[in-house]
């Protein structure tokens, strides 16, 4: 391994693997990147040991791309280790950026999750009612598991993050833009989300009148015949475009599905869900509380709809004064 190529690490925390897949999907682009850098950790693809990383000098890794949210002791340990060893930490994808799909678990409790997964699920056969513990002794041998936290956290609630790459997963063009910016040293100010500064609606080509059309109820996409030329919100289907950062190429919209908000929100917005509440409320018909409540009741899971990828990043969860590992 040559020493003058920048060292790069990829790591996954509470992740579905989709972000790893997104890197592999770069195809030939990946080969260019792989030739330009020296990969020192990539558990999904290559066999490295944590001890190899521990043996590196602090700051020796040029950039570590971390995907997935934080929920276990092991994830926290490696994230902190990478923070020490890497010059730049990039939160890669929605889960690391805002908590992502795993973050929805913050709307329930650890106890309920364990109960469903290990005791009640129809496919589970667990007569001894065993649930995971951090340490147990089997035949005189100690076996350990990483502790499972009560809440899911974003990466920056645990460690200092230099850049964010949004998306579930980030689109290839977003990844290439970010990697190029890093390799060429053309980086935005620290803490920035690498991506568009515009809302998805700004580049969406669907038609919509200046004044929103008011609705007495909302629909799921399969409940109506969606006109592929017309704005979803105009048709009464919740679309997160108004409060979502553009840059994905309107992927879902092009597939005739509304945006669910994976690119996170725009600079200057303190809360994606709250911003969406304003945007969607403007489409509700009704001056009386009763009429409005009827329309609202047709949105079945408001928290899951407005914070699909960002429950842990919500103002209602974010811990401002948290001790962050620098």
């Amino acid at each position: 391994m040559s020493d003058n190529k920048p060292k790069v690490a990829f790591y996954w925390c509470a992740s579905c693997g989709g972000c790893e897949e997104a890197v592999v999907d770069l195809n030939e682009g990946l080969l260019d990147v792989a030739a330009a850098v020296d990969i020192v950790l990539w558990p999904v693809a290559l066999d490295f040991k944590y001890s190899d990383v521990e043996a590196l000098r602090d700051g020796d890794i040029a950039v570590a791309f971390v995907n997935g949210a934080i929920r276990t002791d092991e994830q926290a340990h490696i994230a902190r280790l990478l923070r020490r060893k890497a010059g730049l930490i990039v939160a890669f994808g929605s889960c690391a950026h805002t908590g992502g799909i795993p973050g929805l678990a913050n709307l329930t409790t650890k106890e309920k999750i364990f109960e469903t997964s290990y005791l009640k699920s129809p496919t589970v056969d667990n007569p001894e009612k065993t649930i995971p513990v951090t340490k147990t002794t089997v035949d005189g041998v100690d076996a350990t598991l990483p502790g499972f936290w009560t809440q899911v956290h974003t990466l920056d609630q645990l460690i200092d993050v230099d850049y964010y790459l949004p998306g579930c997963p980030p689109m290839p063009n977003s990844i290439v833009d970010a990697v190029t910016a890093i390799l060429e040293g053309k980086l935005p100010p620290k803490g920035a989300v690498i991506g568009s500064k515009k809302a998805l609606c700004d580049t969406c080509t669907r038609t919509k009148p200046v004044k929103p059309t008011l609705h007495e109820r909302f629909y799921l996409p399969h409940e109506i015949d969606v006109d592929p030329e017309v704005c979803f919100l105009e048709q009464g289907v919740i679309c997160c475009g108004p409060a979502t950062r553009g840059g994905c190429g309107e992927k879902c919209i092009q597939g005739n599905m509304p945006c669910t908000g994976c690119y996170g929100t725009l600079d200057g917005v303190t809360d994606q869900g709250a911003k969406l509440v304003s945007a969607i409320a403007a489409y509700i018909d009704g001056d009386s509380a009763i009429e409005v409540k009827k329309a609202v009741a047709t949105i079945l899971d408001p928290a899951g709809t407005f914070y699909r990828y960002g429950v842990p990043a919500s103002q209602l969860f974010k811990k401002e004064a948290m001790e962050v590992t620098k």
Binding site: V277, A282, V296, P302, A303, L316
Partner: peptide, 20 residues
């Protein structure tokens, strides 16, 4: 005030899901 009412009524079930 009508806009405020729409937002508040939309926010309410969402806050309930967060335990507020």
């Amino acid at each position: 005030n009508y806009s405020a009412q729409k937002r508040m009524l939309l926010l309410e079930p969402l806050l309930a899901q967060f335990g507020i």
